[in-house]
Computed example of a mutant assay.
Amino acid sequence: MLACTEDSAHDREHIYRVLHLALEIAATEPGCDREVLAAACLLHDIGRPAQFADSRVDHADAGAMQAACFLRENGFSPAFAGRVGDCIHTHRFRSSAPPESLEAKILFDADKIDSSGAMGVARTLLYQGQMGQPLYTLRPDGRISDGQGEKTPSFFREYRRKLEGLGDRLYTSRGRAMAAQRRDAAAAFYQSLLAEARAAGDGERIPPTLWEGP
């Protein structure tokens, strides 16, 4: 795991926060296999280097295969390795494969909680900065877009597409409650940043005369 933490938004501290959050959720979910859950939490992002090397790679798919292989090679049963791999395969937010097992649902929730609130805003900005993505984009009329319905990546777009309603996508009642506690912090930052950006020149252009000499 430590060898695969190449970016600031998905560093070892993110992994440990996800593990902590997952175990807190698991305490409210009878029947959870904590060994499977812990292994899945620790290994859930090991596929990210493959995705950075090739944007066509889904880190959840790559990580699931890598984790299962790693576990089998280190003495874990094929059944255990398969269950961990299944959790990792379905932990991604933008995925057509929803989590099915209890452990997979808890991993999904814990990972998304760490993408919510002030922490989620900070991690999103770190990641988008590394990817060279802007805070916002402009509409055809020159106004600053709030991100709704935009196709070009930006922080405002990511907030509207993911962060704003993240808590509604979670599977466990404890996970939804934890995400709800963080929602206002992210919303306040987004609204403040949008207001400041628009106050600095929304819909305006620098007058040509400003560039003209005497």
Rank of each mutant, 00 (worst) to 15 (best):
D11R: 04
D11Q: 02
E13F: 11
E13V: 13
H14I: 09
I15W: 06
Y16M: 13
R17V: 04
H20A: 14
H20K: 14
I25R: 06
A26N: 11
E29G: 07
E29S: 12
P30H: 07
G31H: 11
G31Y: 11
C32D: 02
D33H: 11
R34P: 05
R34N: 14
R34I: 10
E35T: 14
E35P: 01
E35D: 15
V36Y: 05
V36P: 00
L37C: 09
A38M: 14
A39H: 13
A40D: 02
C41G: 04
C41M: 08
L42E: 09
L42Q: 08
L43H: 08
H44G: 11
H44F: 09
D45N: 12
I46A: 01
I46F: 02
G47Y: 00
P49S: 09
A50W: 04
A50F: 05
A50C: 11
Q51D: 06
A53D: 12
A53R: 13
S55T: 14
S55K: 09
S55W: 04
R56W: 05
R56P: 02
H59D: 11
H59E: 14
H59R: 13
A60E: 08
A60Y: 04
A60D: 09
A62K: 05
A62N: 07
A62I: 00
A64W: 02
M65H: 15
Q66T: 10
A67G: 10
A67W: 03
A67F: 01
A68T: 12
A68N: 06
A68H: 01
A68C: 11
A68G: 15
C69K: 13
L71I: 08
L71K: 09
R72G: 12
R72P: 04
E73M: 12
G75C: 07
F76N: 02
F76D: 01
S77N: 12
P78A: 08
P78H: 12
A79F: 02
F80D: 09
R83G: 00
R83V: 07
V84G: 03
G85W: 07
G85N: 02
D86V: 03
I88F: 00
I88D: 05
I88H: 03
H89V: 00
H89T: 00
H89F: 10
T90M: 07
H91A: 05
R92K: 15
F93V: 00
R94V: 14
R94K: 15
R94S: 15
S96A: 15
A97F: 10
P98H: 13
P98Q: 12
E100K: 15
S101H: 04
S101E: 06
S101C: 05
L102W: 01
L102Y: 02
E103P: 06
K105H: 08
K105L: 00
L107H: 10
L107W: 15
L107A: 02
F108K: 01
F108H: 09
A110M: 04
A110Q: 09
D111L: 11
D111Y: 06
D111V: 12
K112F: 03
I113D: 02
I113Q: 06
D114I: 08
S116K: 01
A118Y: 08
M119R: 14
G120T: 07
V121F: 07
V121L: 06
R123T: 05
R123S: 14
T124W: 05
L126V: 04
Y127V: 03
Q128H: 14
Q128C: 01
Q128V: 00
Q128P: 00
G129R: 13
G129I: 04
Q130K: 15
Q133T: 09
Q133M: 09
P134A: 12
P134R: 01
